Amino acid sequence: MRYGIIGSGMMGIEHILNLQHIEGALVTAVADPHEPSQQAARAAVGDPGLPVFADHREMLESDLCDAVVLATPNMTHGDILLDILAVDRLHALVEKPLCTTMDACRDVVAASKDRSGIVWMGLEYRYKPPIARLIEEVNGGAAGPVKMVAIREHRFPFLQKVDDWNRFNRNSGGTLVEKCCHFFDLMTLIAGAKPVRVMASGAQDLNHLDESYGGETPDIIDNAYVIVEYDNGVRAVLDLCMFAEGSRNEQEISVVGDVGKVEAFVPEGVVRIGRRDRGRDMDEIKVHDPRIAFEGLHEGSSFLEHLDFAQAIRTNTQPLITLEDGMLAVAVGVAGQMSIAEGRAVPMDEVL
């Protein structure tokens, strides 16, 4: 299968490296207006003659690709994805977040209907082996009916991107959209219900305050607590800190039900399962997925997602992660950003 990559910055290169380990996959074209990114793509593919385009529309018209991966800066997703969706035969994998605004999300979801090509939402954290095992255990009843979901991400600050686009809310959608849509997707998947209200507290307390771009100081938050309430009574909370490099794990997830508790730890690769009637006597499982041929930046999750994307294309089956999933994750992030800015709880019907 011939793949085109639109956007060959850090995540575009990550997709190229993953595709090199997918049987039958071949990167045949790249589109990116930034010349150093074009050269980085050629180097990653190992082909100095790889066709590169400054304009993604030229690549879409070239007939060099069967599928495309969209990995451009967040604020460009809406317009570029509409161009991709207009080419009916093309399959597409869209990097998170789907878009930075709800209007743009609604536009691309509407445009994705009744197409020949499959459209897959890139939310690869579902595929991180410890998280996938946690979801499997929860779905199998290890915790009983879910009551509470807690996700902690304690990590390093945002990395530097081309033209520093990720330093400003207007470009990224805000930290809760740009970074945390992954976690809101996981919360909703685990809760098995619709989010109805979001309450958040957050700030920019440390990161990027000494930086200036065109006379502007970055405005992206670097820490937050976000509570999400669901229509089945489940409550979820995100604890985010982006100046917490001194952590054993970057992500820790806890799901509690009326029977017990299931936890996942990444990158430690451990899942713990406990029952209320057993107290501190817990099962600890070291998790690894033997299918992973390339670990990459996300513990092999991008590789596993590409396996399923390719399988869906080959078998002409529906995507396991949809643009609607991506839109709902963005919506919770948008509500969280609103809650912080306005100091109030935000009903989801104000956003959706």
Rank of each mutant, 00 (worst) to 15 (best):
residue 2 R to E: 09
residue 3 Y to M: 04
residue 5 I to Q: 07
residue 8 S to C: 15
residue 24 G to S: 04
residue 27 V to G: 10
residue 31 A to L: 06
residue 33 P to W: 12
residue 35 E to R: 11
residue 43 A to L: 14
residue 44 A to T: 03
residue 46 G to E: 05
residue 53 F to Y: 15
residue 54 A to L: 07
residue 55 D to C: 03
residue 65 C to G: 00
residue 71 A to K: 02
residue 72 T to S: 14
residue 73 P to K: 04
residue 78 G to P: 01
residue 80 I to L: 11
residue 83 D to F: 11
residue 85 L to D: 09
residue 88 D to F: 08
residue 90 L to P: 11
residue 94 V to Y: 03
residue 95 E to L: 00
residue 96 K to W: 02
residue 97 P to S: 09
residue 98 L to M: 12
residue 102 M to Q: 02
residue 115 R to C: 01
residue 116 S to W: 04
residue 117 G to L: 10
residue 123 L to Y: 02
residue 126 R to P: 00
residue 130 P to Q: 12
residue 133 R to Y: 13
residue 139 N to S: 08
residue 140 G to P: 01
residue 150 A to L: 07
residue 151 I to R: 09
residue 155 R to N: 15
residue 163 D to E: 15
residue 169 N to C: 06
residue 173 G to M: 04
residue 187 M to K: 02
residue 192 G to S: 01
residue 213 Y to D: 05
residue 223 N to D: 03
residue 224 A to H: 00
residue 229 E to G: 00
residue 234 V to R: 04
residue 237 V to G: 12
residue 237 V to H: 05
residue 244 A to C: 07
residue 245 E to V: 08
residue 250 E to T: 15
residue 251 Q to C: 09
residue 252 E to V: 14
residue 258 D to S: 15
residue 269 G to W: 00
residue 276 R to F: 15
residue 276 R to W: 13
residue 277 D to S: 13
residue 284 E to I: 15
residue 288 H to V: 10
residue 289 D to S: 11
residue 289 D to H: 09
residue 292 I to A: 12
residue 296 G to R: 02
residue 298 H to W: 10
residue 298 H to R: 08
residue 302 S to W: 00
residue 308 D to R: 11
residue 315 T to Q: 14
residue 327 M to D: 05
residue 334 V to K: 05
residue 336 G to Q: 05
residue 337 Q to T: 11
